[in-house]
Amino acid sequence: MWKLFVILIIVIAGAIAYPSPIDSKAFQPSRSLAMNGVLAPNDALQATQLTTLPAGMRGGEDIAVDVLNCVYTGVENGDILRKCTYSDWEVLANTGGRPLGLAFDAQQNLIIADGEKGLLQLTPKHDLSTLVDQYQGEKLGVVDDVDIAADGTIYFSDASALFSLKDHFFDGLNAQPSGRLFSYNPTTKALTLLADDLFFANGVAVAKDQSFVLVNETFAYQISRIWLSGEKAGQKDTFLDKLPGFPDGIATDKNGSFWLAIFAPRSQLVDKIHPLPWVKNQLAKLPKDMAPVPPAYGFVVQLDKEGNIVQSLHDQAAVAIGEITSVQPESDGLYFGTLHGREIGFLP
């Protein structure tokens, strides 16, 4: 028995001595908004209608709809898919990476935020090209989401400059914000850094009046606002914080409100260990399949232009849809994307 004890001690000591893939910092999460009032759980999302992706494909992370009301998404294997009412799914192109965010410009070019390849463009003739994949001579990290202003300026997020897409969980534990928000001028090819030191820069949305752009900071449970015009132009402030889950995608509705996708509720375990760097460093050594995974939950929130929560839609047991990564408001309803699901969703 004593030999087994000695071996166990040696194994534990070796595991502790083994270098961690992160060098985390202490972080004190904000206190979450209470899940009552407009945030009270309901099951409104159980009315979501599902459209199955082609066989073997999954992870329609974001949704875009063109002028003909055809639906586009990008999946795990890099394919860009289109489905029109009169046809089945079509594969238009493959990025060679992981398409995450999608948005159409005025010329109906599909602008793609690819977590591995950078900011891409797919023309109506299905020609794929790279708009930008470097900043100041260094490769962009995880290009995550994109939105386009009325003047054609493209705004996009780079979630992390420290970790790749496959290691994004490390970015949350690390608590050393390295996310960025950029603007790209497709005419001059100018790339401008608007904000940095963001806690995993994720969803992006330009205000209807073009006065500011929002960017979600997933691991800080908040939405930041960067002013584009007026006295505060160039300044960053907090649009909404203390969110009860991990904000992912965000989109602007035609009425000027915003729809926010919350990927999952907060993890009490993660919040409790955030102030403890040593514990987080040890946790990062474990196999990824041992990482804490919150239960599947469907959750989207509507915000007014001031950042007030107007309503929330839930699917508490993810009966119809869970782990929602994007919500795209269109004239006929809301379209939902997910990170790993085999379907995309639509709520009339």
Rank of each mutant, 00 (worst) to 15 (best):
G298S: 11
F263L: 15
G101L: 09
K208C: 01
D248I: 09
K236M: 14
T52M: 12
F299V: 07
K166L: 11
F170T: 00
F104H: 04
K117C: 08
E138N: 14
I262T: 11
E231M: 11
I111L: 11
F5L: 15
Q235G: 02
R31M: 11
A291N: 10
G307L: 11
A93R: 03
L4F: 10
V300K: 06
A15E: 03
S30M: 12
A296Y: 08
A93Q: 06
V142P: 02
L165G: 02
L173Y: 14
A17S: 11
L92W: 10
Y72W: 10
F156C: 08
P329T: 07
A296K: 14
A284D: 06
D62G: 04
G37Y: 09
R82E: 08
W89Q: 06
L214P: 00
D147C: 00
Q121P: 01
V204I: 11
N109T: 07
R266K: 15
R98P: 03
D171I: 10
P186N: 09
Q268T: 13
W259Q: 05
V215Y: 00
A284T: 02
S24Y: 07
A251W: 00
L122F: 07
T48H: 00
P247R: 07
F346G: 07
F219H: 12
F170I: 04
Y184T: 01
F263N: 15
G337F: 07
F156S: 05
S183Y: 03
E76L: 13
A251T: 11
F299L: 14
R58G: 10
